[in-house]
Design a protein around this nucleic acid. Structure first.
Lengths: 348, 348
DNA sequence: CTGTTAGCGCTTTCAC
DNA sequence: GTGAAAGCGCTAACAG
């Protein structure tokens, strides 16, 4: 069964030309006669020849492997699956193929997969780093001149390109919306405080409060796991507060769902009795929960953008770090139907 | 910036040995002296050498590329994202790295990515084929002796291994459950009838009806897009039936959600007024919708199983087709809390 | 325009 | 145990 791989010399022989001619045909060079090209192409097809990129790649001193790597911290999260789809989209169109690995938030696993990808000669890497990733983890890659684009989560001090969503603007817009609705005691619920994303969103929240002349109250910042269960937990603690909040900005949509669950358990109707806004829109987009206002980012779009940036750097040979910010939208859903107010804040 | 890739000869030189010795060290051969090995390892580390799998792979006549490909029809669907995670899990542990591509149900795109993967020398492929995939699309791969495992959706007539969930048993179990609840008019809602999965589930449905001495009524089989919107559509048509059903088995969970939506729009409470069971459990598992009974399959588990099968075939060099069936569980959720009844049907 | 000739970085007999 | 030499499939100068 294991058929021998057929090579250029065989097709050269069969076509009655030399292997370099075949090689030229393969690369679509214009240096080859039309009739020769046709003949060679025919033989290639009829013999079922498959190009060996490994060999080609080996010969071309510079590693033009046509492989890009993408590693995400949690592919189980639809957000990252969508991101990967976006990346795959542009990567495929550019004739590349992607290594995709999931780290599950393990920096060890991340180190391994990156090392492995490096051995395979990826020409670029897109990474949503596992929590706790250090600049050193990416150091060897950048040192060898391989472009790296960090997405979603920044790595402080790493000299690589990045693409983050506009957490600050999104959080501000959400809080402004709640303020416009008449809320004054607005909580910030969920998320792990030791992450850059959390910090950015929190600052956006604080900025908006200040603009509205509302004093920041640290007791209204209640962190928890960024999950549905975490949301339940956070809102439970929030409603037990002496001066309880009347609305909340949630770290992400999972938390927002949990907050809704918890509100209902407390006989409060989300939206009507208590304002709720969640970040991210993946789960929301999938399950179309009505009447929940969200700060939404387009993960596929982010993926495409990241891939474009990476390809640009690969092709230009210029891997100077570039920091991009992805726009976010505040999507307000009234019970009467989806109304959208767009908040675009873009850098780049 | 683009640092020159350092090679075995350089580390051989630096360590004062020959390159073959270095090669042996790299492969952990026992033919090399302990002290030599240590010295070489040290040099390798200190010079930041990275192994070039492309070159190694080129030399070893048989393509042991340590790359497996996985192509799915819709990574946007959590089911397949989970599947990919399962695959990645075992693939990573085995020291492989995976090419992941999304076809978005396009057979053309699928053909392209498979061709591309082949050029890169994958040593095996796991594929959840796009709708309309023909055996011929996989032919060249199998002809060259590359093991292929088809998952989720079978390809009639393709001589490749497969891993499908037990659609027949799952559908039967669901119907039996509804019958036990006293239902006699049970609909089969959603899904495209031109797929093998649909056919298998329908047969399971029919089998269970027959066992319960219920006559099959073709008007109760209402197909639609396998989406939430499709579910709304299907249930709308179902309730307009003269002799309307009192329960339904839904093609998948998305349809089930839509059916729930549609029921509520018709002032019917799912579960209480109308029995609903959906296939698959991905969305359900994520959003924990209460009181919806599901026929659940474990996508990560399927991914792991598929990867194990593939690796087995790669390592044994024996790619004889093998057909595996993945077990499914009927998960009954009472409003009082999650109660589980397991339906295990396994082949292998 | 096409053929010849060297390698890319690695593994692998086969001598030493 | 370790080194020398050949060659995997391909591309890149050069000649012709």
């Amino acid at each position: 069964m294991t058929k021998e791989r057929i090579t250029v010399v065989e097709i050269a022989h069969a076509a009655g030309v030399s292997k370099s001619t075949v090689s030229l045909v393969l690369q679509g060079s214009s240096l080859v006669n039309e009739v020769t090209r046709a003949k060679v192409s025919a033989v290639i097809r009829e013999l079922g020849y498959v190009y060996n990129r490994g060999a080609a790649n080996l010969r071309q001193s510079n590693s033009k492997s046509k492989i890009i790597g993408i590693v995400v911290n949690d592919l189980t999260n639809s957000f990252f699956a969508e991101l990967a789809v976006g990346v795959d989209d542009v990567v495929q169109s550019a004739g590349y193929v992607q290594f995709l690995s999931n780290t599950g938030e393990s920096v060890d696993r991340q180190r391994e997969v990156i090392a492995s990808m490096r051995e395979h000669g990826i020409s670029g890497l897109i990474v949503s780093p596992a929590r706790g990733t250090e600049p050193a983890d990416l150091k060897p890659l950048v040192a060898s001149g391989i472009p790296v684009v960090v997405v979603v989560r920044n790595i402080q001090g790493a000299k690589v390109s990045s693409l983050m969503s506009d957490n600050h603007a999104g959080a501000s817009a959400a809080v402004e919306h709640l303020v416009a609705l008449g809320h004054r005691r607005i909580a910030f619920l969920g998320g792990f405080p030791d992450t850059a994303v959390f910090a950015e969103r929190l600052v956006g929240y604080q900025t908006a409060l200040k603009s509205a002349d509302i004093a920041f109250d640290a007791s209204l910042v209640i962190s928890s796991a960024p999950s549905r269960a975490g949301g339940v937990d956070a809102i439970d603690r929030a409603v037990r507060l002496g001066d309880r909040p009347t609305a909340a900005l949630c770290f992400n949509d999972a938390v927002a769902f949990g907050v809704c669950d918890g509100l209902r358990a407390n006989r409060l109707e989300p939206g009507a009795d208590f304002g709720v806004i969640g970040f991210d829109d993946v789960i929301e987009a999938k399950t179309a929960v009505p009447a929940l206002t969200t700060v939404s980012v387009d993960p596929q779009g982010m993926g495409r953008r990241a891939a474009q940036l990476l390809l640009k750097q690969i092709n230009s040979g210029n891997a100077d770090p570039e920091a991009l910010v992805g726009s976010v939208r505040l999507v307000v859903r009234e019970s009467s139907g989806p109304a959208r107010r767009d908040v675009e804040k873009r850098t780049a």
